[in-house]
Design a protein around this nucleic acid. Structure first.
Lengths: 102, 102
DNA sequence: TATTATATAGCACTTAGTGCTATACTCAGC
DNA sequence: GCTGAGTATAGCACTAAGTGCTATATAATA
């Protein structure tokens, strides 16, 4: 939270610099990328908790993520770990809700 | 488009039924899952166009999706196809903008 | 009781994802 | 002109995630 506040503040400053012409668009884009909030990792249990927060079955949750129920099962059992994009999707759901995937 | 209009209308009707107590929450959830908008497929070129819409380099775009630049390259060259969750992420970016991943 | 929905377990297969290196092409600044 | 940073493409090899399937177990429910 305090980290996010700092990042936000720095980001605002960068946007001001951009408006002032001190940073070109390219640099700005890279800056944005570097300032992307770090993707949070989830344990098997945390994934299950995240799903249950929305009272969704494994099948329904999988449908939202456009993956298979088998995959969600393995995540929750700790047999497999979600890869990059899947993890990002879990972060989005965690922070913005399952609805944004609708 | 006409398909989406139909789905939207049906969905609205279902929500009305839900409000009226004719459907319980569980059924409603499953209904929601079944009514999830179909995930759009993208050709290699369409992925590249999507990325360029946000004037992002492959590396930056990859960072947003929490994947590697190598993977984005292969998508755009048609050497690999994005899997389920990756495709969902592309759909989200397409429909809601790259910002929602921030 | 019978049935439906859900979750777990285990198997086998395929391929996406990843990392790395080398090459080539812009484009802006010296 | 030349140079260097940024970007994109190509090709290689490896690993593990993703997928599909079946069977079993449980809980809730009609």
């Amino acid at each position: 939270m305090t980290n996010k506040a700092i990042l936000d503040a720095v980001h605002e400053t960068a946007k001001d610099l951009h408006r002032a012409g001190a940073m070109n668009a390219t640099t700005m884009r890279e800056f944005d990328a570097m300032c992307l909030p770090p993707v949070k990792q989830y344990t098997a249990g945390q994934i299950k908790k995240l799903r249950l927060r929305y009272k969704a079955s494994q099948a329904v949750f999988a449908a939202y993520l456009n993956t298979s129920a088998s995959t969600v099962q393995k995540w929750e059992q700790g047999q497999k770990k979600p890869n990059g994009p899947s993890l990002k999707l879990l972060n989005v759901v965690d922070q913005k809700g399952l609805e944004v995937l609708g």
